[in-house]
Design a protein around this nucleic acid. Sequence first.
DNA 1: CCAGACGTTGTT
DNA 2: GTCTGG
DNA 3: CCAGACGTTGTT
DNA 4: GTCTGG
Length: 201
Amino acid sequence: MCGRFSLDHFPESVVTALIDAEIEFAPREEVFPGDRVDVVFCRDEGNEVAPMQWGWKRSFTSKPLINARSAGAWDKKTWAQALRNHRCIVPASGFFEWDENQPKGRRDKYRIEPAEDDGFAFAGLYEITVDGEMFMSILTTRPSPKLSEIHHRMPVILDRADYADWLGAGNRESLESMMQPLHDSKLRLIQESRSPDLFSV
DNA sequence: CCAGACGTTGTT
DNA sequence: GTCTGG
DNA sequence: CCAGACGTTGTT
DNA sequence: GTCTGG
């Protein structure tokens, strides 16, 4: 991760735990960097939903910053302020990883879904430009043991009990405790496709 | 993130 | 190699 | 003031 | 482009 995730169904339990409102929702099988998705954030004591573009733009690189390493983000000028004041939650139905043990271009694709839920809540950071456009980046952490067999990073996924604290005025210590790998028991790995040459053997 | 294009004049 | 589209 | 970093995943 | 370090 985290270069692609899914929203093939509305992650209702995640969103209703965050906000009590009718949500505009455009399901799509896959969400790509640069796409706009609905993101939840807190402003003036109340949670809100707004479409945000995935990836922060920076002049020093042509690639949008779609991920932020949670370890160290406190000390990086790009993320520090947002980590303190502009945290958000990105609802998703799942995400994708490619098996990095295999050569690039021939990697099996895996879909990761919640084991017993209808969605994930990615921890993210957002910024608003002068013209009011909003951009978000998804925090990453170490992989859970199961995921570590195919990939060395994973998105930060929040527990339901932490949603409010994440969006509220959390202190550094409590925020750090939320940015841990999701427990293996809360995810399912599904092989989505495999390399063509594995079939031809 | 990955996959696929990336180029033109001119020909079919 | 690098950019674009999905 | 100038020089150099700035971001990630993945690669070397 | 903007911030930091020297």
